[in-house]
Design a binder for these strands. Sequence first.
DNA 1: ATTAAAGTTTAGGCAAGACTAAATATGAAT
DNA 2: ATTCATATTTAGTCTTGCCTAAACTTTAAT
Lengths: 236, 236
Amino acid sequence: MLTVSVENYLKAILHLQVEGEERVSTTAIAQKVASTPASTSAMLTKLGERGWLEHQPYHGVRLTKKGQRVAMDILRRHRLWECFLVDHLGFEWDQVHEIAEELEHVGSVELINRLDAFLGFPKLDPHGDVIPGANGRFRSVAARTLLTEAPRNLELVVVGVVDGGDAFLRHLGVLGIQLGTRMTVMERLSFDGSLHIKYPDEEEVQLLAPSVGQRLWVDQSSPSPEIVFPEEEDLQ
Amino acid sequence: MLTVSVENYLKAILHLQVEGEERVSTTAIAQKVASTPASTSAMLTKLGERGWLEHQPYHGVRLTKKGQRVAMDILRRHRLWECFLVDHLGFEWDQVHEIAEELEHVGSVELINRLDAFLGFPKLDPHGDVIPGANGRFRSVAARTLLTEAPRNLELVVVGVVDGGDAFLRHLGVLGIQLGTRMTVMERLSFDGSLHIKYPDEEEVQLLAPSVGQRLWVDQSSPSPEIVFPEEEDLQ
DNA sequence: ATTAAAGTTTAGGCAAGACTAAATATGAAT
DNA sequence: ATTCATATTTAGTCTTGCCTAAACTTTAAT
């Protein structure tokens, strides 16, 4: 049965897997779903029995194809609702996460497909994250790089953030950075990777901490070629 | 705590109360929420302790102001979502109930108020039922409405006809309808919009063609005690 | 006034999902 | 190879919300 709790576990595991871990640890999952390792361990056993993941005791967990498909659907619902909240109800991008966390558990497939169409089949949510399509695969998006890895002396545009936590988003607000902000990396300091940033209409150069630069997706401010994201076989 | 289960009980009780029962019986509630009388009894005790209703053992239940306010909010959410599903996602009015049953439990007040504004503060949902406003009270319906657009389960009085041609008026005579006739819309058929009409002193329900319903102006017959539109002070 | 039917509550259980505390496995450092 | 800190699982409870079966009230009919 796909309860809210089960959906939250699957979603958490997908996130951790996408962040690069081959096998995901019990403790990491427990932290993500704000539960204890003990509770999580029990849940993982159950999810394993039901075929959503492989649980190798003491060595973490990996989603099966079936589990991954379910988790991608939840991600899809979450991100489509975020689009709706920002584009049509006028919320700010840092206000929508909690609400979308609830909306994402409303199960109707018909509902979400119609919402998708209503929104015009968006590719990115308000945080710049890729939205899976109805087939459970990521839609292709424009190329993007982390700000810390972007070339210097080239005008860039902010197209996404890596960690959409409220604190970080608010910090961006303080810095005057949002999706669509244009900037150019002038210099990268060897000391700690801080960046000298120049904004189009300002003379002053701003110093940006690496912790921020590592979490900003940017693209060339002029159109760039498209790249394709994971195909079916990548997701098994 | 306002769990989904609790919300469903409160909603069921409000529905039964609005349908006219002074005190609502355990069995009736059990039927509405598809549970057993035993489970329901236990739940009613709990809801009583938490101040949402008065539970007089063996003699049914009545919502407190506080409970009524909560239930009205759920009704509001349900009906607003139904508007959204029909008006913007293109669902038919007979497909939206189940989906709205899920959406109604998403709690954010901000969300629902913005949705309300987005929809243009509608007064009636796609089934012709009245939508409570942000203050937890039913919105007053325009002084006169077409019968086809009037809310259900509310006694109406015929106050005018749109096309006063002889043929139409003679037809009304055959049907036994004239200015001042009282009636209640019980059901609106999705097939062609025909209406099931109930007259005060008759058992039989009459089927009225949409061509007639579209030409009759109606108004609330008189503030009826069952569907008193609760005032602010009633809801403390 | 008595009694039977109908309605309601109590008693005793079960499943899901969480917790703490205790036991056990792993892996890194000696 | 042994030891120890850390990660994980097991054991035992708790709460919520549901169930069935049994006991008890109320009400309506004799």
